Amino acid sequence: MGQLPLPFKLHRLASFETFVADSNETLVSHLEAVARGERGGVIWLCGARGRGKTHLLQASCRAADRAGTRAMYLPLDPGGALEPDCLLGLDSIGLLALDQVDTVAGRPPWETRLFSVLDGFQSSRRTLLLAASSAPAAAGFVLADLVSRAAAAAVYRLNPLSDDGQQQVLVAHAHFRGLDLDEATARYLLARVDREVGELCRWLERLDRASLIEQRRLTVPFIRKALAAEDS
């Protein structure tokens, strides 16, 4: 059967509390029910980079673990250190979250292992979460049985955040970092940096470090100075 792969560490801010659902409320409600053990099955999340797929996979694992379900987050990366056999021996996992599954499309050893995982989870009461940039039919799989199994998943496409949603993300992540970021200051930052969620969070990390060094609050003048320093 092989050994279980080492679990990847969850990001400390990856939780349902820090995820702004905006127009993705149905998906988030489904995942919260799954994490509580009220629902199961195979769920496929798709959408462009920065839509929150990884955040939701990790949030589901964190919530499931707190509810007493053994959970594991595993990003697939055929160009990295993982081998296809990392998908063996996962029968004891109650909730498995596989990220970037489309990166193994067209690679027979990976597709064979992934099919076995899908087949096993669909025939049990356990939960399998999958994330990719596109829906199952467009993922590029060549193994017919894998295409068929993936097509049977509940598919959710994540919608982009609205302007208000992006502002809520900034304020929520600042709050969980212990930072005081008012709406006006958040709007100022949003108007001047890349609005991709990951980049917004990276900016918060930079501002958090700078505010600690200078013992300053996150105000418009402080952020203006930080942005100027970044450009210089």
Rank of each mutant, 00 (worst) to 15 (best):
54 T>I: 05
80 G>W: 02
148 S>F: 08
37 G>L: 00
62 R>N: 09
191 A>H: 11
96 L>R: 00
32 E>S: 08
164 D>L: 10
199 E>Q: 15
209 R>E: 08
73 Y>V: 06
95 L>K: 09
164 D>Q: 03
33 A>D: 13
221 P>D: 14
77 D>Q: 12
122 Q>D: 02
157 R>P: 14
189 L>N: 10
116 S>P: 00
118 L>V: 07
212 L>T: 06
230 E>M: 10
161 L>G: 02
17 E>Q: 12
102 D>M: 06
115 F>S: 05
197 V>D: 05
147 V>R: 15
206 R>Y: 04
118 L>K: 03
192 R>E: 05
80 G>I: 00
7 P>C: 13
151 A>K: 13
21 A>P: 11
60 S>R: 07
68 G>Y: 05
145 D>T: 00
213 I>K: 10
74 L>W: 00
101 V>M: 13
230 E>F: 15
87 L>R: 01
123 S>V: 03
47 G>E: 03
167 Q>F: 00
228 A>P: 09
11 H>E: 13
87 L>M: 07
66 R>C: 12
19 F>S: 00
166 Q>H: 14
159 N>K: 15
47 G>V: 07
124 S>A: 08
213 I>C: 11
70 R>M: 10
156 Y>V: 02
219 T>G: 07
126 R>H: 03
78 P>M: 15
141 F>S: 09
1 M>G: 14
139 A>H: 08
72 M>D: 02
25 E>G: 04
206 R>N: 03
68 G>V: 10
114 L>F: 09
76 L>C: 06
154 A>G: 05
7 P>I: 11
61 C>P: 09
44 W>H: 11
29 S>E: 10
36 R>P: 12
51 R>Y: 10
139 A>Q: 13
124 S>L: 02
12 R>D: 13
102 D>V: 12
26 T>V: 12
124 S>H: 01
62 R>G: 07
142 V>R: 15
191 A>G: 11
7 P>N: 09
53 K>A: 01
231 D>A: 14
22 D>H: 09
117 V>Y: 05
198 G>C: 13
103 T>G: 09
134 S>L: 14
39 R>P: 14
39 R>V: 06
39 R>G: 12
162 S>F: 07
118 L>A: 00
222 F>S: 03
190 L>Y: 01
38 E>G: 11
45 L>A: 01
86 C>P: 00
43 I>P: 04
199 E>Y: 15
